[in-house]
Nucleic acid binder design. Sequence first.
DNA 1: CCGATCTCAAACAGCCGTGTTCGAGTTATG
DNA 2: CATAACTCGAACACGGCTGTTTGAGATCGG
Lengths: 204, 204
Amino acid sequence: MSPPATTPPRRADARRNVAAILDAAQECLIRDPEATVAQIAQAAGVGRVTLYGHFATRTELVDAVFERVTAQADTMLAATDVSGDPMAALARLVTANWQVVHRFRAVLAAAERELPPARVRGHNDRHLRRLTALLARGRAEGAFRTDLPEQWLATTAYTLMHAAAHECAAGRLDPVGAGVALTATLTAAFAPPPPPGAPGGHGT
Amino acid sequence: MSPPATTPPRRADARRNVAAILDAAQECLIRDPEATVAQIAQAAGVGRVTLYGHFATRTELVDAVFERVTAQADTMLAATDVSGDPMAALARLVTANWQVVHRFRAVLAAAERELPPARVRGHNDRHLRRLTALLARGRAEGAFRTDLPEQWLATTAYTLMHAAAHECAAGRLDPVGAGVALTATLTAAFAPPPPPGAPGGHGT
DNA sequence: CCGATCTCAAACAGCCGTGTTCGAGTTATG
DNA sequence: CATAACTCGAACACGGCTGTTTGAGATCGG
């Protein structure tokens, strides 16, 4: 039989190595979703064979990292309060969610690339649902616009989070400014459009 | 020596094949940015060797397709009128630009993946500049918000165009609805935020 | 301190993609 | 129609990645 991949290793150093591998894999996949098993092993300070001793397959490793990351993400999001004024709740949720995207974007990209779609959906939908729930409530209360599909609003939010993360990674935006820009943009984009007879300049 | 890759082929059928290859490559790369040379050759109804006779390298082929696509994109965008009321001009530019993204997103992804970054920047910046120019003018005229970096507004616009294209490709949005949603969202997101003492319900 | 557990380098097999060579066959074109 | 231009399938070399085997050695843990 192969060494225990599902059963936790018996010896302390083995368990330590598994942890090191997961750490290294997460870090490597964040830098490059196509990172090689060899690269990950080296980053973990471990032989390639040892890695295969703990994770039979590259896919299995990615899956483990994905599991780990979603757990961390859940922790970061669980604390967010989505009650009260929808617009304020949106700002809170977006701020928290953006941090998650900022950190784990690349890992999710790797997961989406080589894990069965259903696997990713399951974990992802949970986060999405928190947003759509807030969206639905806010629309019912008249705090958010209802002239566009809910689906599109959710897409807008997530897309802009990814964009902010990307800009941040490229050094064109600092994390603080990104948070500000995100909430300002989404607040404006989600507010109900003023009726035709609004005050102010109207053009011709 | 190698067959004429830079010099156009002398014979009619050869020129026809080059065209077929470019067509097939464009189509294949749109479906999958990692499409194989073999797949492209087959789609073009041509032997792999023949393809290599006209394009010494996969990179060279991608470059040619990229060249072609940017030319088409330029044509589609050149006609857009960006004068007049900034908000209306934005709507026009976004609608036109979105069509481009909708069609060629995947090819650009392929190009970004395996062409020297400078190559892509050059052609891309031209389109970007049209938007930023409009942005600058609109901000100066008070039609667009100035409380966020211009860079961020541009990113927002392009990101949402890509998102709309993606939603469209996934069948969750029809092209018409996408255009509407895009302009509605960007119009709201780019408008100057109302000063603190605005009318309407304010909560608590 | 001894044995079970774990590590590891080297080397191998298999797959897949790129790019090249060869030799024979086809087709345009003057 | 004859020749230069072009096409094509098969086969090869090359490199990279995955996953496996082997056998010797290090290390934990009772």
